[in-house]
Design a protein around this nucleic acid. Structure first.
Lengths: 256, 256
DNA sequence: CAGTGGTCTAGACCACGAG
DNA sequence: TCGTGGTCTAGACCACTGT
């Protein structure tokens, strides 16, 4: 810190702060340790609280910190590697694919949004669409919330009044899905912010950064189901392929 | 909106603002159109500029807006689907895999960070590591910057003084890599913030949100190379598998 | 040059969690 | 009840882009 020289192009304070804090975290703090509160940190660095917060925000985005209202700011553990598409292609819910819990279930006419309907192709246009909610738990913590859309046409064996809306029907839908021949699937990952319901499920504030994984499941007939899963971006590292679970810390991205 | 009742837990202003703006973007604005400047928008909504900015920030994070200093805020086009691991496994640089440009090249002793060294296994411990820089262009725009680490041991056919540091050597390294038998690979995706050099390459400010794709390339002997690619999170949607390029807009995530 | 977004300040009040 | 982080304000100045 004391070696800071006059810079021709002054870098923003919060950026510099972030660097300093980052180094301090590496050297002087252990995982789980709580930092001094924001007001004190700001005073200690001689900046406004808002500026300090801008630095903390970035560090939280990078998974280095965890902030909880009413509690404090703690040093976050390294991100958990979460397997997505671990082995070959398979239906959701097959062979304990990591989604340990089935949460609830509702059926509705046009619940899914326009874009999801587009992904479903013609299937969901008029017919009702089953909506299955699941959550994924890893290391005792909720890491993802999923909404699975299954057009009624995909699971003809299931009548609308087959089971009372709820976990029971959710399981029935998954069971019926697994009877079909999976012809292929298709995945995309993008950054998003948590909707209110997902945020609650993930124990985060609304708007928290999430990785949105959209999966389409194909049969010979067409798109049989679409899954939209939102993963906590602060705590998760999505892994693909036969990834050995090697620890990757932020250091992988520190410039030399 | 008119149906909003008195809420026991009032939602934050910026959150509400974001919703309102989001709907306005859908209805009253075309892609590329410029919004009124921040000061005017803030005044129009009766909030402080900082609050307005918090809403804009979220919308930019979700890829709905694009803000450029000195220019203004414009409505962003839908995210580009960028294929990652499109077909089977292959070495980087093979068969026009989307990385259209080779940028530069340097060789060094311990340039890679500790975590990258760990990913490389014992290989990079003492030996020099080739560092290849590439950028990926899509639709005329830089969407990703990559740093490829190749331990000298992986490409014994290449002597250190084989080619002058620069694009020429970069291509030489890739050529040598492709001679090897690729035994497998391994990928992970996580959220990060752009380092200064990557940010410059991607035409973003430092700290901008990026999707960090880390890939390990295996031969029978061990890890032959490690690639760390940072994608612009605001403009990119990473696709995996035989993804048909269906347009996915933010609407896929709008609650019903 | 004027106008834009980016940074920063020094306050204030609120919602939440724990004792 | 108290301390924490979360939200919000009303300013100010700076850095960049275009004309």
């Amino acid at each position: 810190m004391g070696t800071t020289q006059l810079e021709t192009v002054p870098e923003p304070k919060y950026w510099h702060l972030k660097t300093v804090l980052s180094e301090a975290l590496d050297q002087d703090f252990a995982v789980g340790e709580v930092l001094p509160n924001e007001r004190e940190l700001a005073a200690r660095f001689g900046v406004a609280r808002a500026t300090l917060r801008q630095a903390l925000e970035q560090l939280e985005l990078e998974g280095r910190l965890q902030r909880r209202r009413g509690v404090g700011t703690t040093v976050a553990p390294p991100r958990v590697g979460v397997a997505v598409a671990s082995a070959g292609q398979s239906w959701p819910g097959e062979s304990a694919d990591g989604w340990e819990v089935v949460d609830a279930d509702v059926t509705d006419a046009a619940l899914p949004s326009a874009a999801v309907l587009k992904l479903l192709g013609g299937a969901g246009a008029d017919q009702p669409v089953h909506t299955v909610r699941r959550t994924r738990v890893s290391h005792g913590q909720a890491v993802a919330a999923e909404l699975l859309y299954v057009p009624a046409a995909s699971v003809p064996g299931l009548s609308a009044i087959d089971a009372p809306a709820g976990p029971a029907r959710a399981r029935a839908v998954l069971r019926e899905l697994q009877r079909l021949d999976l012809d292929g699937q298709d995945r995309s990952v993008e950054l998003g912010s948590a909707r209110a319901d997902d945020a609650k499920e993930l124990d985060r504030l609304p708007g928290a950064p999430v990785l949105v994984v959209t999966t389409r499941y194909f049969t010979a007939v067409g798109t049989a189901a679409v899954s939209v899963a939102t993963y906590r971006a602060d705590t998760c590292r999505l892994t693909f392929g036969d990834s050995v679970d090697v620890e990757i810390t932020h250091e992988a991205r520190v410039a030399s």
